[in-house]
Structure formats: C-alpha cells, structure tokens
C-alpha cells in the first residue's frame, strides 16, 4: 500500500487554490481581454481562437504573475494588473496567429498592430467609464435612432434586412447608421473628457 504524503497533498491544495484564483480572474476579466484582442484583429473572425490560446498561455505563466517576477516585478496581483498582464500575452498571441493566417485572411501589418496595441493598452483602464458613457449617451438618443443603432447587434438582424423591411436603400441606412455612430462617439468623448 502506498500513502500520499502530506507534502503532496499540500502541493495539490495549493495548486487547486491557484487554479481557482486563476479561473476567477479569467472569468472576471474575460470580456476585457476579448475586447483587447478584437481591437488588434481586422474582424471578429479568430477572436475566440486567440482568446483560448491566451487563456492557456496565461495559465502556463500564471506563477510568474503571482510571484511578480520576470518582466513584471512591480505588479500587484489584482484584477487590473491581471488584465494588463494577460493583454501583453494576448498581443504576442495575436502577432503569432496573424502570421499563420496571413495566407488566407486579412491581417494587419505588424507595425500597425503595434500601434493599435499601444492605443488599446491605454484604453484598458477606461473601459468601464466608456461603457457607462455609452449607456448614458445611448439613453439620450431619440428612440428610433437608439433602436436602429442597437438592432444591428440583434441576432438575425442587419442593416440590409432593416432596409429591406423599411423599403429603404441599404446605402442610405448605412449612412444614417454611421452618422449616429459619430454622434454617439462625440457624446462619449465629451463625457469622458469631463470625467475626473
């Protein structure tokens, strides 16, 4: 008969704690990481793949994050730091995936990708504020405009379909949609600029 030694049990418990902590951080911040990844890709195609690859790599490197060594000596271990840390990994994952996809998909040139990543890093901490500002600005739009803006995100809906339903030309509706987007952006930027 063999016995599992105390040290092995401790190790497994500690490993389980780490696992719970990691999954907790990942689940809480999944949307922010996904958003960062999307900002580096030309379309939503491939986002899920990169999210998975990033999640795996984050787990592999999680001890670095916890111990705060290697490239992240000053890191605390909070949620915001986790997002930033994960996004650094995500950036390299995107670069790596893009090289594989270059033959059959649209991919950004590497230096543009880097510029976009730099912009996206700066926006990480503003995501909640921005989301709040978008909600507030959306609520200020007249009902029809808000409906038009939001309805394209509904399953099965599209500008084309709405245009068909309304007997309007898609092109005209696209223009209207884009105008609304610009108005919304302007409103959001104004609100963000007023934030302390």
């Amino acid at each position: 008969m063999t016995f599992v030694g105390a040290s092995t049990l401790d190790k497994n418990n500690s490993q389980e704690d780490r696992y719970r902590r990691f999954v907790g951080l990942l689940a809480r911040n999944d949307q922010a990481i996904r958003r960062f990844i999307r900002s580096l890709l030309p379309s939503s195609q491939g986002v899920d793949d990169v999210v998975q690859e990033t999640a795996l790599e984050c787990w592999r490197k999680f001890s670095d994050f916890e111990s705060g060594d290697l490239a992240f000596p000053e890191q605390a271990q909070g949620s915001d730091e986790f997002i930033r840390w994960a996004c650094v990994i995500a950036r390299f994952k995107v670069m790596s995936c893009q090289r594989d996809w270059a033959r059959d998909r649209l991919v950004f040139r590497e230096h543009i990708l880097e510029q976009l990543a730099e912009d996206a890093f700066e926006e990480i901490e503003n995501r909640e504020l921005e989301r709040l500002a978008v909600e507030q600005c959306l609520s200020q739009l007249v009902v029809d405009s808000r409906r038009l803006l939001l309805s394209v995100y509904r399953p099965g809906d599209s500008v084309k379909r709405i245009a068909r339903e309304n007997g309007e030309k898609s092109r005209r509706l696209y223009s209207k949609m884009n105008l609304l987007r610009k108005q919304l952006l302007s409103c959001v930027e104004r609100r963000l600029a007023e934030e302390p």
Partner: peptide, 27 residues
C-alpha cells in the same frame, strides 16, 4: 485616422455588449 478607428471599434464593442445585455429589451 488610427485614433478614430480605435475609438469607433471600441464604441462598437460597447454598443454590442449593451445590446447583448439588454437582449429583447432592445426593442
């Protein structure tokens, strides 16, 4: 242009998240 692209994409994602969270309340 790059800043406009990033801001618009970010806005698009926010609106998408809000639409998803509203679900059928959208309309």
């Amino acid at each position: 242009a790059r800043v406009f692209y990033s801001r618009m994409l970010s806005l698009d994602q926010s609106v998408s998240e809000i639409a998803e969270s509203l679900g059928d309340e959208v309309v």
